[in-house]
Design a protein around this nucleic acid. Structure first.
Lengths: 148, 148
DNA sequence: TTCCGTGCAAAATGTTTGCAAGTCG
DNA sequence: CGACTTGCAAACATTTTGCACGGAA
């Protein structure tokens, strides 16, 4: 099976890169954090295991992974400055964010493929990828709002 | 008819705000730039008419408009730092961006409503808005790529 | 005349870079 | 050995803020 770490090792080998202690920690942190951590969040986890790792190493590694197509930069909250890094491994997926608690739920929907195809047909564009965000209230926050 | 400027005036009146020279220039710049300008682009247009207007006034006004729901902040290119400001007036609309020339095409599609409704049904979330990005090659860049 | 809005400069934020020293193969 | 990586600190780009002054209502 191809975990993020396995894939990273493969890429490193084919391009003369090295699997360092720091990179391993960062990859493990990504795996453990799962969904969509910020660079700071990755840093916090890595830092706990080895406080000597520098934030710029986190950024360099995240950018490298992004360039390799293994993660992708995202911003759920458009006017937040901070990027989040989304593992692309599982498959193309989309996100709902609760406007109150900021929690994120992942989803997919067959119609997204239909939209891609039809837009391509109408516009003459070649569509390579799609990214959909829904915003609203999650069930919990909806309850709270109704109650008040 | 409700132009951006009319709406802004309404909001200002109901909250004791003032229509200043600077705000008028900024609103006119937004109208004239149309689609998705950056703060710098708005600044450039305003500056041409009155070089004494400060960039921080642009930001303050854009943030106020955002808060009023008259424009919304966006980032087409995820790892770009700069925000763009999208007029929300016309209607909910979505964007295709060419990964080569970075041009943006707006679109809408009925299935987006379907996705919103069905996701709400399955998840129990209340969906308030949606934002879809497609990425790929526009017809021109596609030609160029085929030719080479 | 009263606040609201502005210009200015300085701060803040999040990310990137240059470089010397360290390390992996 | 030699290229690839790192930590550090300084740079960077964009956006935000505090404050005293000026202007709309």
């Amino acid at each position: 099976m191809d975990t993020l770490i396995d894939l990273a090792i493969q890429r490193l080998h084919t391009q003369g890169g090295r699997m360092t202690f720091q990179r391993r920690l960062i990859l493990e942190a990504l795996d453990c954090l799962g969904c969509h951590p910020t660079a700071e969040e990755v840093f916090a986890v890595v830092n706990q295991r080895d406080p000597s790792v520098n934030l710029s190493t986190i950024y360099r590694t995240l950018r490298w992974l992004e360039q390799e197509g293994l993660i992708s930069a995202r911003r759920f909250d458009e006017s937040r400055r901070q990027e989040r890094f989304d593992l692309v491994l599982p498959a193309e997926h989309h996100h709902f964010q609760c406007t109150t608690c900021k929690n994120v739920i992942e989803f997919d929907h067959p119609s997204i493929q239909v939209i891609k195809t039809q837009f391509a047909g109408v516009s003459g564009c070649q569509v390579q990828s799609a990214s959909m965000m829904l915003y609203g209230l999650c069930p919990q926050c909806r309850q709270l709002r109704l109650a008040s």
